[in-house]
Structures are given as C-alpha cells and as structure tokens.
Design a protein around this nucleic acid. Structure first.
Length: 300
DNA sequence: CCACAGGTGTGTC
DNA sequence: GACACACCTGTG
C-alpha cells in the first residue's frame, strides 16, 4: 500500500490510514512497552527509538513524532503492518459468526505489530504465569539496566531493549537483582545464550511447516506452546496460529467448545476454523474478552 | 495468610 | 504421551 506523507518539524504524518486505533493496538495485549502519553497519544520504544504516536479519527492522519521518512520506510511501515488491508481481513472474520462479528466491531482498530524477535521472545517468556503490570516492570527494569540509553536533546528519554549478547553474559543473580522475574531469570539467560548462536529467523519461521517452526522456538528455555505461538504471531512470522492462554481457553469454552479444555485441541480447532487469519481472530476475541468477558458470552 | 496472574520445566506413570 | 506439581514475586 502506498501512503502520502507529510514531513513536519518533529516527525511525520501518514495520510489516510484506515482501520487504526491506538487503544486497540496498544491495549490488546500484544506489546508491553507502549503507554498513553499526556496528549492522548501513545509513547513507546522499539528498534532503539522512542516514538510518540497519535491518530486523528476524522482525517485518518497518523502522526509519528520522532520519526523521519527513512525510519518510516525502513521500520514503522512494517512495524504497524501498514501493508495489510484490515478491511478485507475484518470482513472475512466478521462473516464467520456472531462472536467474531461482535469482537471485530469492538476491536475494529487492532493491528498486529511486527515486533523485534529477541524482545518478543524474552518478553513472552517473562509473561508466563505472570501478570501484566509486573511483566511491564520486568521488561523496563531489564532495559534500564542492560539496554542503551536513548537521547533527545541531551536528555535520556528511554532505554532500548537489551541485546542478546549482553544478557547472555549475565549471571542469574544479576538478572534477578534488576529484573525481578523470579524463576524466569534462568530462562532469560539460557535463551539469550542460545539466541546468540541460533537467532530467530522470521523469514524461515514464516515459510516452513508450522510445527517445525514451533519446534524451533521450543528449543529456547521458557518457550512452550503458548509462548511459542505468541512469538510466531507477534513478530509477524505467521498469522495462522492461535495462542491459547487461560482467557482464550475460557472464551473458547464458553463460545465454541463447551466440553474441551485441552489447549492443543482448542488451538487446532481454531486454526482450522479461522484458517490463515486465526491469529487475528485470537486478538479480536482476546481483546473483547479481556475487557468485557460477560458481554461477549451473551452476544446474540 | 492465601489465592492468583497471558505457562513451563521436571519428574512420574 | 498424559498427568500432577512446584514455581518468583507483587497485589488483593
């Protein structure tokens, strides 16, 4: 897709961006380093940069503060998945059933971010059996201690996510002291070590057999079926996966599979039923369920 | 004090 | 393979 750009003093405007809503994108659970700022936008860190994003619903203008045209072309276009026609995907999913229709309507501005592999890997290892505020804290702590400072006008405005080589050299105690990720600290180090010799190749994961891709990711300590599918989905490697956590299992029980609690069976049913867009279906359903579980179950 | 949070590793059968 | 069971840590 081609977008008209306008360069402004402190950033760039992308014109006519459809199917885009900040809260839907940043609160649907796919990312941990984006927070609302004072002016109604969102501020986040990715690719070693601090970016402030705002969006005008009336004009469909997307504002990226702290980005230039090069960054847009090389980074943010892909990061915000601006090449995908969400109108098309949403029409397909809405036609499936009333639950998807309601969920797509509720989270109509969701976009799947294509996030950096190593950060996504470590972040979702931390997410296991954990709660969101603490996950965010762990990631921030890790970045503050082992990431690089990001400067704006000689002031430090944030810290990049650490490089695998740095984390691989840390002791468990060092990670534990700053990150407070508990027993997951060991996983962080082991996974970082392996990542240095065997990094994630998104291209490869996207092309090979789904189960082979899962097997590759499961080699990293702390990565099981759910975290593995999150990595496939949130790095943009593939969208035909359906990460099943407690919430998704609950909602699938309530809506589609009343008698099945086995997560593997839920996943295989969903990826069959939703096909190549199973991952997006999961996001719409998950977001609706997280915000209004009972309403989703009572959808007429 | 105890349950719980976006599961996973490990040890059994 | 299918199953319990423990597990850091902050919060209610």
């Amino acid at each position: 897709m081609n977008y008209e750009l306008e360069i402004i003093e402190d950033g760039i405007i992308i014109k006519n961006v459809k199917d885009f809503e900040l809260t839907h994108i940043f609160e649907c659970g796919q990312c941990f380093r984006w927070l609302p700022d004072e002016k109604g936008g969102y501020r986040g860190i990715a690719h070693g940069r601090v970016l402030v994003v705002s969006y005008d619903k009336e004009t469909c203008n997307l504002f990226l503060y702290g980005a230039d045209e090069n960054d847009f072309n090389n980074i943010w276009y892909d990061y915000f998945d601006l090449g995908t026609d969400y109108g098309e995907v949403k029409a397909f999913l809405s036609s499936k059933d009333k639950y998807l229709r309601a969920s797509v309507e509720f989270g109509n501005g969701i976009r799947l971010l294509k996030q950096e592999p190593f950060e996504t890997l470590i972040s979702f290892i931390i997410s296991a059996n954990n709660n969101i505020p603490r996950i965010r804290k762990c990631i921030e702590n890790l970045s503050k201690t082992y990431g690089k400072p990001i400067f704006y006008n000689d002031n430090i405005v944030g810290y990049s996510f650490p490089e695998p080589e740095i984390l691989a050299k840390c002791t468990e105690q060092e990670i534990s002291d700053c990150c407070k990720a508990g027993y997951r600290c060991k996983y962080i180090i082991e996974t970082s070590k392996l990542y240095c010799s065997a990094p994630i190749n998104v291209q490869t994961l996207s092309k090979e057999d789904k189960n082979k891709a899962r097997k590759t990711l499961a080699q990293y300590m702390g990565v099981g079926p759910k975290v593995g599918d999150c990595i496939l989905l949130f790095t943009g490697a593939r969208r035909d996966v359906f990460p099943v956590d407690v919430w998704v299992a609950k909602l699938m029980n309530g809506l589609y599979l009343p008698d099945i609690s086995d997560r593997k069976k839920i996943e295989s049913y969903a990826s069959f039923y939703f096909g190549e867009n199973a991952g997006l279906a999961q996001q719409y359903l998950f977001y609706y369920a997280r915000e209004h579980f009972d309403e989703l179950l009572n959808t007429i």
